[in-house]
Structure formats: C-alpha cells, structure tokens
C-alpha cells in the first residue's frame, strides 16, 4: 500500500513549525540510532538535517516580487535521483518514500544533477548529500512524519495515497468554490516522464504554481537525455564490435583460401 503527503499552500500559515520539528526530529534520530548522546546531537547545528525549509526568491525585474516556497523532496514515483545514484545509496521504498542511506552516500552529487526540483543538498563538512526521507522509520513504526505532527494548520496531511488524493481533491473543490479561482493538485497525476506522479502532492492556485517551482513537465533535460545517448552509444558499440568480429572471421576465411 502506497503512502503520500499533502501540502496545502492555501492553508499554510507560514509558521514553519514543520521546518523546526524536522531539524529536531533528525537530530533526535541520530541519538536514537546510537550516534551520540541527546546533548551532543542537539548541540551540533547540522543545518543539512532540516529537510523542509522556506526558500526566498524574487520574480521579475528589480525589485521583483518576493516569493517564498517550501523546499522539500517530492518523492517522485520514478525518482531520477535513485536512478542516477552510482553507489545505489538511494532507495525507493515499496510504499513510496525515496530514501538516501547516509552511510552509503559517497557525496558525488549525481542526485543533485538529476533532481528536477533541485532538492538534495550537499553538505561539504560531511561530504554527503541529504534530503527528506519522509521519516520512513516513523512510518514503519506506525507514526506520521514529524512535520505533519507539528503542523498547527493541518496544511500538511499524511495517509495512504487514496486518502491523500481524496483529501486533496476535496480541498481543491472547496477552494475553487469559495475563491472562484482554479486550484491544482500538483503531483496527483504524472508530472513528467522523468518523475512520474509524486508521493508529495501540493494543493495550490494553478496560476501561480510555477512561481513556487512546481513546473509542469519538471525534468532536467540534459540528464534525462543521457538515456538516449547511452542507448545509441551501446547500439553503435555493438555495431562496431560486430564489424570487428565479422572482419576477423572474414580474414580467417581468406587466409584458409590462400
């Protein structure tokens, strides 16, 4: 059974309790996993362990329009990061979340190159890359992700995929009715070939979703084109190898004739 998350841009009150709780949970997790005392792990700042946080950017000509979007992993169905990780450090759990196993990460940043949403963050001090793994250990223990538990406005919602999509569609239709504006449930359907559908769906006004990095057809074109390059490359290599083998036998035949 697949699980999913929902982020409701309209309901979000921008308190960022999710971000604070994420940082606390991830440091507490280190202590739970026996990687330091609670005092030691909380003493270390470890900003890379905050997997959901606001990002400010300006749109248009100076001074522009300030927009802050919530940066987090989308947990893509096809997970380009997992497909490109040469060390197989990224796992797509059968129930949906995309998990980086820190101990296997070699810090090559192939996932940073591949991610259509620029999510993974490289921490030079640790030599590794970090991103949200949807508190998969909590999920496996029957608990919701920490950020969902912290949200006072129910802008974050967690459940089975069916429950989340149903809740998302309910919110979309309610907002459209009340505000007279088109809303989208981004990620409910396939976003692009590269990503597939998303396990972290977003409810937001359709007109401004792109300002919040939620692009239709999200993909890193040069990285996705690698598949075509590699297919063509291997076919040409096969043709060249076949030519070489063919000429070798042709030469042998000629020699016997002589």
């Amino acid at each position: 059974m697949k699980v999913s998350m929902l982020y409701d841009m309209q309901a979000c009150i921008r308190c960022y309790a999710c971000s604070v709780q994420c940082g606390i949970e991830n440091r507490a997790r280190l202590s739970r996993d026996g990687r330091g005392t609670p005092e030691r792990v909380l003493e270390n700042q470890r900003p890379e362990l905050r997997f959901i946080f606001p990002v400010f950017h300006y749109l248009g000509n100076y001074p522009g329009r300030a927009v802050s979007y919530v940066h987090h992993c989308m947990h893509c169905e096809n997970a380009p990061c997992a497909r490109r990780c040469p060390a197989a450090a990224i796992e797509v759990k059968p129930y949906g979340p995309v998990v980086i196993h820190e101990e296997r990460c070699i810090g090559c940043r192939a996932c940073v190159e591949a991610c259509p949403f620029n999510v993974p963050r490289f921490a030079p001090r640790m030599g590794k890359t970090y991103k949200c793994f949807m508190c998969y250990d909590r999920l496996e223990a029957g608990l919701p992700p920490a950020c969902v538990e912290a949200c006072p406005a129910r802008a974050l919602y967690f459940g089975t995929r069916e429950e989340v999509l149903e809740e998302g569609r309910r919110r979309v239709s309610r907002y459209e009715k009340r505000l007279g504006e088109t809303f989208t449930l981004y990620g409910a359907e396939r976003v692009s070939e590269a990503t597939g559908y998303l396990h972290w769906v977003t409810v937001g006004p359709a007109a401004i979703l792109e300002d919040y990095t939620l692009r239709p057809d999200a993909a890193q074109k040069p990285i996705e084109a690698l598949d075509a390059v590699r297919t063509i490359g291997w076919v040409l290599f096969g043709a060249s190898a076949a030519g070489v083998i063919g000429h070798f036998f042709y030469s042998l035949g000629k020699r016997v004739e002589e």
Partner: peptide, 11 residues
C-alpha cells in the same frame, strides 16, 4: 553546468 558537462562526458 554540471548537467551539461555530464551529458557531454557521456557523449
């Protein structure tokens, strides 16, 4: 730039 470099390194 990394992405285009990766592409051309493969080519």
């Amino acid at each position: 730039a990394w992405r285009w470099a990766r592409f051309f390194h493969d080519v």
